[in-house]
Design a protein around this nucleic acid. Structure first.
Length: 482
RNA sequence: GGCGGUAUCGUCUAGGGGCCUAGGACACAGCCCUCUCAAGGCUGGAACACGGGUUCGAAUCCCGUUACCGCUACCA
């Protein structure tokens, strides 16, 4: 039998990195072992659920390429079945009507607290006689349906933790259906997982304590138990549960920072899992191939954005310019450096630009930022660089003029040919290469940091390069006069 | 408080009784390469929470302590 797994987020915010990690592991399992990966939106909490959040979850999953099988299930659409299951529990004597109101319960909870005791539901409504129950139901008293936790203990063999056991006496009789007829989380989950035929429940380990309750529900409903796998949490750099104050927590935030989806997936995969053999950089296919439940970790992991950046730099270096083009174009458009149409007209030129920049970038935004000198008509000179590289104005102007003169003689505008040309010039001038290249770099890009100078010349092209040197010479001499 | 879970460099992790004077990666420092910046290469500092067992032998197995996390709702 092939396994059926699901990712079941509640649409109360964006797709969180923790949620994305859980979705990824479910997906990897399904791809590696062969199985179906389903998506269920847990929107039973109408007050907090929004369509916008649901859309954000879809977008996040799509961006990551975590495609799901079959149609999306909306938990809210299964209200009738949830109610039916609750009735079934009632009929089978596995649950009972509780007429205690929320206010009364709250009152008793407070009283227990003032006595420094822990409030536990005392099961008083279990003692109600049949006649009284019928009378109160007939008179329209509101009631909840409470699951009657049996004696003994509940245990299961967790795929990541091994055997876990809970003494049932520590678990309160839990409400499964509210007085307004809507289901409580644990019932809705179990009811849906049964209906969807889920065979492996893989989720965050914050659900470990819910598991015995759910197992009892499965048993009371007479359903076959799925296998459970509880994944470790992801924490912020301070070791606390990842939240807003740690900065970006939504996968969309990282997308907008210029992180590649393949990086996000690779990075998330290593939080709670390791392929062993010191392997770190993986493509999606490699992850699918390497994934195994044997190496799932139990310990919570800290999300380190610095390592994420490094990893993105690695993926950027390895990605083809062709693959990077669409995301770079989007970034270029956003900053107004180039339009998609510009790119279309000089596609191969843009590709070579990307090849030049990707290796020295950590994010797509870095590529966009660094492409400015190659795309803008006017460049501005970095003041510190001017002070340093063009300190001796007279000499600098003369040297640049000499460079220009020599470049103008070039018949082959390739990096190799240009290198030969300029190195010869440096030699005849009796200066070191750096003495020549740095002032030139400043003239060409306005900065002292860039790709190799010969590549810069090539990407800029002959005319633009010569124009920039002319402009630099004018700039220097003008300052001289002033 | 009760119950449950977890515990290897600052961080991600390898390790599943001897191969461990604990390996890799990020970050940090130094060096090399070099036209600058990256990338790359090399080197360095940096960890088995603590205490008891078990065993010829423990990071690895057991128990306890401590710390952290989660659950303990008519939230999910």
């Amino acid at each position: 039998m092939t396994d059926r797994l699901r990712f079941a987020p509640s649409p109360t915010g964006y797709l969180h990195v923790g949620g994305a990690r859980t979705a990824l592991f479910n997906w990897l399992y399904a791809k590696h072992y062969g199985g179906e990966f389903l998506l269920r939106i847990e929107d039973t909490d109408k007050a907090r659920s929004t369509d916008e959040s649901t859309r954000a979850i879809f977008e996040g999953l799509e961006w990551l390429g975590l495609n799901w099988d079959e149609d999306v299930t909306y938990q809210g659409a299964n209200l009738e079945r949830h109610q039916r299951d609750a009735r079934l529990l009632l009929e089978r004597g596995k649950a009972y009507r509780c007429f205690c109101t929320a206010a009364e319960l709250e009152q008793r909870r407070k009283e227990a607290e003032s006595r420094k005791e822990v409030f536990r539901y005392d099961g008083r409504c279990l003692l109600l006689g049949t006649e009284e129950i019928e009378r109160r139901v007939a008179s329209g008293d509101p009631y909840t349906i409470r699951f009657r936790v049996p004696g003994g203990s509940t245990s299961w063999n967790d795929l990541v933790h091994g055997e876990i056991t809970f003494p049932n006496k520590d678990i309160d009789d839990l409400v499964v259906l509210r007085s307004d007829g809507t289901p409580i989380y644990n019932l809705a989950v179990v009811s849906d997982d049964i209906a969807m035929g889920i065979t492996l429940v893989m989720r965050g380990d914050d659900h470990i304590s819910n598991t015995p309750k759910q197992i009892m529900l499965y048993e009371a409903l007479g359903a076959k138990l799925p296998t459970f796998a509880h994944l470790p949490m992801i924490h912020g750099t301070d070791g606390k549960k990842l939240s807003k104050r740690h900065g970006a927590t939504a996968v969309g935030d990282y997308q907008h920072m210029g992180i590649l989806p393949e990086t996000m997936l690779n990075f998330l995969a290593l939080l709670g899992w390791s392929p062993g053999n010191d392997i770190e950089l993986m493509s999606m296919d490699e992850m699918v191939q390497l994934f195994s439940t044997d190496h799932l970790l139990k310990k919570a992991a800290v999300f380190d954005p610095v390592k994420l950046d490094w990893m993105n730099g690695q993926h950027l270096s390895r990605a083809s310019a062709e693959r990077l083009l669409p995301v770079v174009v989007a970034g270029l458009g956003k900053t107004g450096l180039a339009t998609p149409k510009d790119v279309e007209q000089r596609r191969s030129w843009f590709l070579s630009l990307i090849d030049l920049l990707k290796v020295r970038s950590r994010t797509v935004d870095d590529i966009v930022r660094q492409s400015a000198p190659y795309l803008r008509d006017e460049i501005t000179y970095d003041a510190d660089a001017v002070a340093k590289q063009w300190k001796d104005r007279d000499a600098s102007a003369r040297m640049l003029a000499a460079v220009r003169e020599r470049l103008a003689t070039a018949t082959d505008w390739s990096p190799a040919a240009l290198e030969e040309l300029l190195r010869q010039l440096a030699e005849s001038l009796g200066v070191g290469a750096g003495k020549l290249f740095q002032p030139l770099r400043l003239a060409l890009t306005g900065q002292t940091v860039s790709a190799g100078i010969f590549d810069v010349l090539q990407v800029l092209g002959r005319d633009r390069s010569l124009d920039r040197i002319d402009a630099a010479v004018r700039f220097i001499t003008k300052r001289d006069a002033a």
